[in-house]
């Protein structure tokens, strides 16, 4: 009927001013924000073309298959979804990816990782949470590990990270640990972000400015 065209929710509009504002408040240039917009458009239309990334779309992007329940998917989605309204908007996408920029401050990466790993958002990474994440990582890759080995890995990690031996890792302990073992933050830097305009050159067709 005549109301059909109103059924599809309108895509949130995104102006050149928005691009400039995001570039001014992130490590990205105007052209890089435009390239990220191309990526965002792809990700946010894989299931429902409404200009927002839903959890299922993030799942498809990360795992390339519908993943169903996944501990890390839930955490990543939750940390990206600043407004906690169940969808990732473009602003939120740019904010979160800023942290992964090679030039982002180490402090930001340390905080972001802490927030991801503090599964129950108690302000501490608890021993049980670390165990749970190790189990999830192993099961994702189909790796079998004897319980004793798993416990030994968690024990060793807490020996190194839990300075006051209270069986949970505080923010300060995490900071000290991550600085001592930079390998634990390796996944917090995406070299792609330095070359995002070459990964998504199609931004050039929609650009409002030449950097």
């Amino acid at each position: 009927g005549c109301f059909d065209r109103h059924r599809q929710p309108p895509r949130p509009s995104f102006t050149h001013d928005d691009v400039v504002r995001l570039a001014a408040t992130s490590p990205f240039s105007v052209n890089e924000v435009e390239a990220l917009r191309e990526l965002f458009n792809k990700l946010s239309s894989s299931v429902l073309d409404d200009g927002l990334i839903h959890k299922e779309e993030l799942s498809l992007a990360l795992f390339k298959t519908p993943a169903g329940e996944n501990l890390f998917l839930d955490r990543v989605f939750d940390v990206f979804d600043e407004k906690k309204n169940g969808v990732i908007e473009f602003d939120e996408f740019v904010h979160a990816l800023s942290v992964f920029h090679p030039y982002a401050p180490l402090e930001a990466k340390i905080d972001f990782a802490f927030s991801l790993y503090d599964l129950r958002q108690t302000g501490y990474i608890e021993r049980e949470e670390v165990r749970q994440m190790v189990v999830a990582t192993l099961s994702e890759s189909g790796i079998q590990m004897p319980d004793e080995t798993l416990e030994a890995i968690v024990d060793k990690t807490f020996e190194d990270a839990d300075a006051d031996k209270d069986e949970k890792i505080s923010k300060d302990e995490w900071k000290a640990y991550a600085i001592r073992y930079p390998a634990v933050l390796k996944n917090m830097t995406l070299p792609y972000l330095k070359d995002i305009t070459t990964v998504f050159p199609s931004f050039i067709f929609n650009t409002g400015v030449e950097d």
Partner: peptide, 25 residues
């Protein structure tokens, strides 16, 4: 039994935490 890897290094290898996958579209 020696433990070569710490828990967070292992966790950081999980697919769900590797956002580089987002660019692979």
């Amino acid at each position: 039994q020696p433990v070569a890897m710490n828990a967070f290094e292992l966790i950081s290898m999980s697919k769900g935490l590797n956002l580089g996958n987002l660019f692979d579209v």
